[in-house]
Nucleic acid binder design. Sequence first.
DNA 1: ATTAATTTTTAGAGTAATCTAAATTCTATT
DNA 2: AATAGAATTTAGATTACTCTAAAAATTAAT
Lengths: 223, 223
Amino acid sequence: MIQSLSLTEENYLKAIYHLSKNGSESVNTNSLAESMNTTPASVNDMMKKLSNKSLIGYKKYKGATLLPDGEKSALHVIRKHRLWEVFLVQKLNFKWDEVHEIAEQLEHIKSPILVKRLDEFLGHPTIDPHGDPIPDENGIVKEVVKAPLSEFPQGSIGMLVNVSNDDPSLLQHLDKLKISLGSKIEIVERMEFDGSISISIDNTNTHFISNDIAKCLLITILD
Amino acid sequence: MIQSLSLTEENYLKAIYHLSKNGSESVNTNSLAESMNTTPASVNDMMKKLSNKSLIGYKKYKGATLLPDGEKSALHVIRKHRLWEVFLVQKLNFKWDEVHEIAEQLEHIKSPILVKRLDEFLGHPTIDPHGDPIPDENGIVKEVVKAPLSEFPQGSIGMLVNVSNDDPSLLQHLDKLKISLGSKIEIVERMEFDGSISISIDNTNTHFISNDIAKCLLITILD
DNA sequence: ATTAATTTTTAGAGTAATCTAAATTCTATT
DNA sequence: AATAGAATTTAGATTACTCTAAAAATTAAT
């Protein structure tokens, strides 16, 4: 059973998870303090506390690593965060860049049934509007593979997770076509001649885009 | 502008609002302590604090009353609580008696846009699943008028807010007809002969019920 | 109008999370 | 291997909220 943690404890565990992600090495006090917007002294106090609860491994001057229970808690909070982000974007029409702050609050709501029902309501999504994977109920994270839309065959269905070019005219064009991060894109047809493709956006409208544009749209395959 | 309050402060204001409801007199320390599950001493400390912030009027030994700012804050929290309850019941399929605890947490999420979007998403509901009115964005509460279904004319549309009889066989019958608190009920046809009526439930199925049953179903008119 | 019972307030202290400033330990360089 | 600079820890305080126990004020009853 997951032990009940304070909001602050949850946030520390989450920060350790994110910071140790790229390397799975131990996280040092200063970087944790910076990412939590607090002082190294405060971090130090909390490390002792989390260590006593067997949520993290902590050796003086050596930084912190998540222990199994701590990782489980961190992943559960991240799962909630990302599910709420999907809710905010898909149901309440928020833009993908407006949801983080709100999800930071919603992620701490404690109710296992609520998470289950929300997950069902959203159709068991596997990635959030930023293209990050949503851990499943057991804390298992499937890594998301991102690649340019141009590389997928006809019939592929994916979600737009990144635009690898910030040319304003491109962004404006995408805006006009109602394509945004999180949009569901299906390749309806490929033109062999010039590589241009016909795509259906969020199951509503269909447009042609050039191969050059398709190269800039990083998607992740759904299902 | 509503000043930003701590979770605890919000809960105290809400409790004062609910306790002073039936009478609008000042709320005494002991009853507040009981309803907040805390001690009179703690209540006293908080009363001083809220009084310093001009949220409540407080005279030693004389209890507390909400001042305009305090009432505004209380109503805003209650608005959020009830909107979330509607969400939980209508969108996530919770039963009306399962949502209170969760809404107690959700009501403290701070984001004006979120409340606005949630309200839109739910179609600007005016009552929650328990039949209590949802204060509008300006804190105005429209009192809900409840009356037995048997008293309304053909064509009336209302929401079931109370069952004034707890006979198990009645409750089981209602369960079979998929009628529960919060259900939207439309009077399709009245039989003058015996007062039995044909009702449509949640726009899905239609059933006949006797006048005796209709007398037990307290509804509030929608729109 | 005095007293007993009740309610309310004060005093003093504890916990969780935070901070600043000082002391300690590590590390990287010479 | 000594040491300067950086990172980390400790010590001591602060704030918000809570508590118990004792004192003070109110109220209700005779």
